[in-house]
């Protein structure tokens, strides 16, 4: 049943291309959000490291890819790679600061670092365009064949394809001994060194990996919208990522993506009515999810299936 469900998930995602041709930009956003939440899940859900500043990597990837294209290199795939390297490198450099032990230092240092980056982008309008955003991003056709069109057709398929490939990689990694060790660290960080695991080194690797994923998500946004705004680095983005993750279910890759999709569509529907309304509901959802505890949508689904079986 599982492979059938999985195939159904991806076919349904792909069918959006024909079923909702008017909404392709929105679906592209959903795919990008899903990749961002996948990256958060690797860090928070699997390795158990808390962060309030994951937008730093998303934003760095977005600005990196955006600037690269603006400066005249619009090849999309190498742009993604550059963004991944850039964000991964920042992850590698900041990981020792974040992983000093305990949730509180991790929360505060990640928050501080992302705010620093956001403020730097804001105060360097010469480089980033500041509050006006980065304009003049021109992306070449994907693989030299598929031009980015106004309807977002190429953008959607491109984002979905990248999401699919990186999902496969993430699934591979989480099922590996490395992934098992991360679950062990999250399950009992005191026992792992007594098994001989260099906990710090494993967490640094997970942090850098997650950062690279977030960087690619950011780069995808920059390339598909041909624009980068300060939004990419905002606290709101970090917080919403966590919400999507918890909404879908922690430590489950499909849950992460499901949460992102549900969130993005709900955002679209509700904020059309009124942005305030949306902020209120997202707040209520956060409070409700926190009080209800772990599991998310996927947990709910599993519980329903389990009851039926």
């Amino acid at each position: 049943m599982r492979p059938a469900l999985e195939a159904g998930f991806w076919l349904l995602a792909l069918s959006g291309f024909w079923l909702m041709p008017e909404q392709l930009p929105l679906l592209g956003q959903a795919a990008i959000a899903a990749l961002f939440v996948l990256s958060l899940d690797l860090l928070v859900g699997y390795a158990g490291v808390l962060t309030l500043g994951h937008a730093a990597f998303f934003g760095l990837g977005a600005y990196g890819a955006g600037l690269l294209a603006q400066q005249g290199w619009g090849e999309p795939l190498s742009g993604l790679l550059a963004a991944a390297l850039l964000a991964g490198l920042l992850g590698l450099l900041t990981a020792p600061l974040v992983l000093r032990g305990g949730d509180l230092p991790a929360l505060m240092v990640t928050l501080g670092l992302s705010l620093m980056l956001g403020e730097a982008a804001n105060k360097l309008p010469g480089l980033t365009g500041g509050a006006d955003g980065l304009l003049g991003v021109e992306i070449w056709p994907v693989l030299g064949l598929f031009r980015f069109d106004l309807h977002g057709r190429t953008a959607f398929l491109y984002a979905l394809a990248v999401l699919f490939l990186l999902f496969l990689l993430a699934r591979r990694i989480t099922a590996s001994p490395f992934g098992l060790a991360l679950r062990g660290i999250r399950g009992n960080a005191r026992r792992m060194p007594a098994l001989g695991t260099p906990v710090r080194r494993r967490l640094v690797a997970a942090y850098a990996l997650s950062a690279a994923y977030a960087g690619i998500a950011g780069a995808l946004l920059a390339q598909t919208t041909q624009f980068v705004s300060l939004d990419a680095l905002s606290f709101q983005r970090s917080a919403e990522g966590l919400l999507m993750l918890v909404l879908g279910g922690l430590g489950a890759l499909y849950g992460a993506m499901l949460g992102a999709i549900v969130f993005t569509l709900a955002h679209h529907l509700l904020s059309e009515m009124s942005p305030l309304f949306w902020q209120f509901w997202i707040g209520l959802a956060l409070v409700g999810l926190a009080l209800a505890g772990r599991g998310g949508l996927l947990g709910l689904g599993a519980a329903l299936l389990g009851r039926r079986a």
């Binding site: 209120f280 707040g283 209520l284 409700g288």
Partner: peptide, 29 residues
Amino acid sequence: LYRRLYGRDHLEQVLFSIGLVFIAGAAVD
């Protein structure tokens, strides 16, 4: 509300309190 989250995960506390901030902001707005 707060009482229910003592001793729970920091992640849940973070989500809960960010949620309160959003609600308060929207209400005041």
